[in-house]
């Protein structure tokens, strides 16, 4: 009987040791997989580590698990584990880093509002660099939400201490103002009344002239028909064609204006992204 108990204790002890070894080696394996970019395997291995440790692992394991999911394009699951890591983190600096990664994951999902909300969890009172990074991301998110005015305000504050960048930023502000002044609907209505003028308004002379000549040709043809045949014939034969190209023209005017606006905004955005805290410090 006594020998039986001893045997059971010995077996259970050896099993425990086996499990402990297995967790460590799994963790090494998980890290190896993460390093070589095999994120699917690393995620599975980190999940295994957490499962066999019954969740009693350091927050950094959760962070790496979330990273694995994020890099494996499973952003929803990544956010879940960033949340756990964030609440288990034992210092502000680590917590802030996790929050930043969570924000980027929300951005990947194009959930800009959630990203903005997550930014407010940051504890920035002790670290200027964190504050700097937070403002940068806030500005970028507002821009992505098409809230250009707020984005400019945030960047104004963000760059207030950087004289060189502030000058460059003024130029970007002017560009944005230029984009703001482009009115696609105005271009469209101008082209409704004077074909081609909407395109020309924003510098697209080739397209404007093209539209003007084409519609003028149809108008001439219409009057020719009316004079040579009858009003009804002109109406039936030429007007459908005129209507088709006239409509195409004013739709083009609106699209071209929108395109120009988007192009300017895109250029400004690319410049703003390059104002990353690490680049301008």
């Amino acid at each position: 009987m006594k020998r039986g108990y001893l045997l059971i204790i010995l077996i259970s002890l050896s099993t425990l040791e086996l499990v402990a070894q297995s967790i460590e080696s799994t963790l090494v394996y998980a890290n190896e997989q993460f390093e070589v970019g095999n994120y699917q395997n690393s995620a599975l291995a980190f999940e295994r580590v957490i499962f066999f440790s019954e969740g009693k692992v350091d927050f950094s394991v959760y962070t790496k698990l979330a990273d694995s999911y994020r890099l494996n394009n499973n952003a929803e699951r990544a956010i879940k584990f960033y949340d756990i890591a964030q609440y288990q983190a034992d210092n502000d600096s680590a917590r802030n880093e996790i929050i930043f990664r969570k924000v980027f994951t929300y951005l990947q999902l194009k959930e800009f509002d959630q990203g903005l909300i997550a930014l407010f969890d940051l504890k920035t009172n002790s670290n200027e660099q964190t504050q700097f990074r937070k403002e940068y991301l806030k500005g970028i998110i507002y821009y992505l939400k098409d809230d250009y005015e707020r984005s400019i305000d945030v960047f104004d504050e963000y760059l207030s201490l950087q004289e060189k960048e502030a000058l460059k930023f003024n130029e970007l502000k002017n560009q944005l103002k230029k984009a703001e002044n482009i009115k696609p609907n105005l271009a469209m209505w101008l082209s409704v009344f004077i074909p081609g003028s909407g395109q020309m308004l924003y510098g697209d002379f080739k397209d404007g002239l093209n539209s003007m000549m084409l519609t003028a040709a149809f108008v001439t043809l219409y009057f020719n028909y009316v004079m040579d045949f009858s009003l009804v014939e002109g109406y039936l034969v030429v007007l459908p064609w005129f209507q088709r190209y006239h409509r195409g023209g004013y739709q083009n005017a609106k699209e071209n204006a929108l395109e120009k606006q988007e192009l300017i905004r895109s250029k400004v955005y690319q410049e703003l992204v390059l104002m990353h805290p690490e680049k301008i410090k």
């Binding site: 993460f34 950094s60 951005l107 395109e259 905004r265 895109s266 690490e278």
Partner: peptide, 26 residues
Amino acid sequence: SIAGVGKAQEISEIALLQNLDEHHHA
């Protein structure tokens, strides 16, 4: 394993943000 990740992270952050630009796609 985390050591030395900083610089790469900055580059990937910028790349990710640049790709989010919907104005460019339009």
